[in-house]
Each structure stands twice: as structure tokens, then as C-alpha cells.
């Protein structure tokens, strides 16, 4: 069941990056039950969700070049700084669409009644993200433009 949960998010990441930004994926790593601390690779967005069986969050953490390339492909404009408002808005909406896609599938299949909180997006210098006392799966995804990481944390079960 847990595998089903992170598999659903991985599928959404891969398909939506392809559809929205034309970004293909070279390699998808095996899910790691990381937990603890992870340093952001550049820019990260977080969408929290809660429902009648589980609650959790979906983090998508990208290297600068991946994020800037994704934004350029979606918006048609090249930005060179992750702190640009349109970069922050685009990465945040992208995660909203990815999480929305996964949550829709989980709700339809498992009756989880999940709803999303608005997305959070952040960038900074050596930002460390902490996660503890929850189940967590980290999946590294390599693309021709660099790497991104999907971190799904949750409580409860499907």
C-alpha cells in the first residue's frame, strides 16, 4: 500500500513534467526511507494534504538548472534567478498540479477524501528540511537538465 502511495506521486511527477515542460526523465531511483534531514538542492515546493485515512505532504525539490529550464519551457521566458516571483509561482503551481493529479487518483481508488492546502515554495542558501516521526519516501529523479527529488511524507494508511 505504501508503495502504491509513492508510486502514484512518482507517476504524476513524470507525466506532468513531460506534459507541461517537455522534460523527460532519464532515471528514477528506488524509494529511500530517508527521514531526518535533507538539504534542498535549490528550490522546493511543498503541498500538504489531509483526508479521512491519511495526511501528509508532497515535496518537490529541484536543482536550479532543472527549475529554470522547467519554468522557461512552461512560460516561454528565461529567468536566471530562483528568487524571481514568476519562478516561485510557476514551481509552486507545478507542484499543485502534480499533487492534485495524485490526490485525485488516490481519492478515486481508495476513497481517501484528501484535500490540498495551498502550495508553499521556498529557495535560499543551504536550506535544510527536517522530517521526523512520519513515514517518508524519497525518490531521486534524474533528467537531462539535472536532478530533482520527490519526498512524500505521510501518517496513516490507505
Amino acid at each position: 500500500m505504501e508503495e502504491k502511495l509513492h508510486r502514484t506521486f512518482v507517476d504524476s511527477v513524470v507525466s506532468i513534467l513531460k506534459k507541461t515542460a517537455g522534460l523527460t526523465v532519464d532515471k528514477i531511483g528506488a524509494p529511500k526511507e530517508a527521514g531526518g534531514q535533507q538539504t534542498s538542492q535549490g528550490i522546493a515546493s511543498v503541498v500538504s494534504f489531509s483526508g479521512n485515512k491519511i495526511k501528509g505532504r508532497c515535496i518537490i525539490d529541484m536543482e536550479q538548472e532543472v527549475a529554470l529550464d522547467v519554468v522557461e519551457n512552461i512560460m516561454g521566458t528565461r529567468y536566471d534567478n530562483l528568487k524571481e516571483l514568476m519562478v516561485l509561482y510557476t514551481i509552486s503551481e507545478l507542484n499543485n498540479i502534480i499533487a492534485g493529479d495524485s490526490i485525485t487518483k488516490l481519492n478515486n481508488e481508495f476513497g481517501t477524501g484528501l484535500r490540498l492546502a495551498p502550495p508553499v515554495v521556498f529557495t535560499g542558501r543551504k536550506v535544510v528540511m527536517y522530517s521526523s516521526q512520519v513515514k517518508e519516501a524519497t525518490v531521486d529523479i534524474d533528467t537531462p537538465k539535472g536532478s530533482l527529488r520527490l519526498i512524500i511524507a505521510w501518517e496513516g494508511s490507505l
Binding site: S40, Y89, T123, M129, Y130, S131, A153
Partner: peptide, 16 residues
């Protein structure tokens, strides 16, 4: 409903 807390640290963080 409240979701899971998420803690971050670091310098010069820009967030929305």
C-alpha cells in the same frame, strides 16, 4: 484539519 508540520532552516530564505 491540520496537516503534518514541516521544519526548515537555512539562510536568506525567500518563500511564498
Amino acid at each position: 484539519a491540520v496537516s503534518l508540520p514541516f521544519v526548515l532552516s537555512g539562510g536568506d530564505i525567500y518563500a511564498i
